Simulated assay, not measured.
Amino acid sequence: MCSVLAVALLAVFVVVAVLLRGSNTGAIFGASDQAAMVGIGILLAAGTMLFANARVRADAEGIEIRNVLAAKRFAWSEVLSVSFPDGASWARLELPEDEYYSVLAVQAVDRERAVEAVRALRRLHREATGG
């Protein structure tokens, strides 16, 4: 999904850059304006691709989640539960004091794969905490 959106964004900005020279708005657009539009498209496409970096790694000791930019590791003893609330776009870790941490790598659009991932994470959590 991220790749398709990134390509679409870049294509739109390239088309706008090409059509910018011929616009009849009274403003004068030059090559630098066109290059800037392509540059903005590249930045937006690259920003979109950051969402494709989401990852989850879990073992008997804990779980490491990398969302957009940062990775964070939790020991299973810090996690109350792994949940996927109704209507949510992705899974999350329930933490103490009503906090939670989103797991962008497990998304609702993945359907059965998301169900299997949440079940596997719950099994690891249960085995590690004895609950």
Score class of each variant (00 low, 15 high):
Leu50Val: 11
Ala91Lys: 03
Ala60Glu: 11
Ile28Ser: 05
Arg92Ser: 08
Tyr100Trp: 12
Arg126Val: 07
Ala52Phe: 06
Ala46Pro: 01
Val115Met: 12
Asp86Val: 15
Ser3Thr: 09
Arg119Ile: 03
Leu19Cys: 14
Gly41Ile: 15
Asn53Ser: 14
Cys2Phe: 15
Ala8Asn: 04
Ala11His: 04
Ser83Ile: 15
Phe29Met: 11
Ser89Val: 06
Ala58Asp: 08
Asn53Phe: 05
Ala6Gln: 09
Val115Cys: 05
Thr48Met: 11
Glu99Asp: 13
Arg21Leu: 03
Leu95His: 02
Ala105Asp: 02
Trp76Gly: 07
Val106Gln: 06
Val15Phe: 05
Ser89Leu: 07
Gly47Val: 01
Gly26Ala: 01
Asn67Ile: 02
Glu99Pro: 06
Phe29Tyr: 15
Glu78Met: 05
Asn53Ile: 07
Val79Thr: 03
Ile42Leu: 15
Ile42His: 13
Val79Cys: 04
Asp33Ser: 12
Leu95Ser: 01
Ala71Trp: 00
Ala52Leu: 08
Val7Glu: 03
Val82Gln: 04
Lys72Tyr: 00
Arg57Gln: 07
Ala120Leu: 08
Phe74Trp: 12
Asp33Leu: 08
Val109Trp: 08
Val106His: 06
Asp110Tyr: 03
Gly30Tyr: 02
His125Cys: 01
Ala70Trp: 12
Ala31Phe: 03
Arg55Met: 10
Ala17His: 13
Tyr100Thr: 12
Ser83His: 13
Ser83Trp: 08
Ala6Val: 09
Leu10Gln: 10
Asn53Arg: 15
Ala45Val: 05
Leu43His: 08
Gln34Glu: 11
Ala128Leu: 06
Arg126Trp: 08
Leu19Ala: 15
Met49Arg: 14
Ser83Leu: 14
Ser77Gln: 11
Arg92Asn: 08
Arg119Met: 04
Ala105Pro: 04
Ala71Ser: 08
Arg21His: 04
Ala58Cys: 10
Ala6Leu: 09
Ala6His: 09
Gly26Gln: 01
Arg21Gly: 07
Gly26Asp: 00
Asn24Gln: 13
Ala71Ile: 00
Leu10Cys: 10
Leu5Gly: 10
Ile65Asp: 02
Phe84Met: 08
Val82Asn: 04
Leu10Arg: 11
Ala8Thr: 12
Leu43Ile: 13
Gln34Gly: 15
Arg57Trp: 05
Ser81Leu: 07
Gly39Phe: 11
Leu10Gly: 06
Ala108Lys: 02
Ser81Gln: 11
